[in-house]
Nucleic acid binder design. Sequence first.
DNA 1: TTCGATTTGTCCGTATGTATT
DNA 2: TAATACATACGGACAAATCGA
Lengths: 248, 248
Amino acid sequence: MQSLKLSGQLLHELGRQILSGALESGQVLPTVETLSEMNGVSRTVTREALKGLSALGLVESQPKVGTIVCARDHWQWWSREVLQWSVDAKPNQHFLLQLSEVRRVIEPAAVALAAQNGTDKDFQVIREAFERLEQSVGNEEDWAKADYEFHDSIIAASRNELMLSLTRVMRDALLYSRKTTIPILKEKREEPPVAALNQHRAVMDAVCSRDEQGAYQGMTQLLESVKVLIQDSEEGRKQNRNPSRSFQ
Amino acid sequence: MQSLKLSGQLLHELGRQILSGALESGQVLPTVETLSEMNGVSRTVTREALKGLSALGLVESQPKVGTIVCARDHWQWWSREVLQWSVDAKPNQHFLLQLSEVRRVIEPAAVALAAQNGTDKDFQVIREAFERLEQSVGNEEDWAKADYEFHDSIIAASRNELMLSLTRVMRDALLYSRKTTIPILKEKREEPPVAALNQHRAVMDAVCSRDEQGAYQGMTQLLESVKVLIQDSEEGRKQNRNPSRSFQ
DNA sequence: TTCGATTTGTCCGTATGTATT
DNA sequence: TAATACATACGGACAAATCGA
């Protein structure tokens, strides 16, 4: 038989359809019966999938009325699933721009917090993560993993679980978007690794010496250079805003 | 009969138990059969509740193994439910401190974004929200509602849906925490409304004149004065950090 | 207001796949 | 290998709620 967890599959299927706009806000979904027939699953599976969507704020059900797609401002955007489905949606430049915007706001501030709240043990973990980053300069796979863990170790030093969770969710989504659109971005990824490494080192040094301001600015510059280059492709110009903005 | 939606009730019940620590990470939940008997509901209801918890990253199920509580760093903290359950948890000072910390990082930056990206129409909405704030100075109920909508209108001017969602979730949680602990905080809420109103006006003026820096600082000061006063009560001192921190 | 139709909500008996022992 | 325990999945039945006539 298949890979088990039919409800999970249907959940992702419906979630993607909602985030892609195929199912618009306010629209009534087919009945549980119909949905089950359409997807060849039992009512139980369909109901569990709808329950998952409901927990994410995407739909709401009422007897007789049916299951309707909630308004966008009711969606739980900051969950792994919703963010991932948003990345999967067809014209996602606008979304990625917004996500990068939020990241450039949060991560520098989080790093400043790390410089403030981090313990010596936290700083030691950061240094070890940086060493792994140094040693993985040649290998692209290793570098991506080490880079993720380096950022993670720094935010962990903020000693704020909520901050760590938030930045992780963001990085997961941006990393996922890079994976799914690798052909276009591959060529542009030819950054000189030495420069990138120096920027990482600057952030590490600032944090470990409790230099809040330096950490803030260092991370801002790092994000500015490593940020995803969202080029203005065919659908991107509609909501394209001031492209020459700088950090505040 | 009761208020319908048994699965929703059970979902909240289990979620609160997990967030409160009654069900620890790695612990195996009772079987669906047992859970159903314990709560006097059918297996269907139990399964739907577990599906909701699964969508929030709180539990994971495997055949034969059972349903286990996920590690804290796997939880989807930034959903309305999880944040609310965290507020409901017994010693929530540490949590509220972290939440306020994140808010003081995000909202000023979001307001600066609003000064940058807002349209004239957005600014008009902000002014109207401020007028409602002025007119509701005497009434505490009305002021809370008008205050919420004022903040909302400003963040909406950032033209960033993700930012709006994030700040809303935060404000909802903090507002909810104030509701549930109103007896202690009630006395301390005797702020001079004129001063508070002036701070709001300062933020509005800065945003509507596209003064990013002024907006950032104004919102920082506003949050500094309106912030929830988490007094060091009996359980609060364990992880109490530097209380005299200033914004960066 | 009453009634009927529709849809979700709920319950339960049963069967299957899977991982542990 | 076989037995066991558990989640997963199926489907028939009924209750409850809401809408429209």
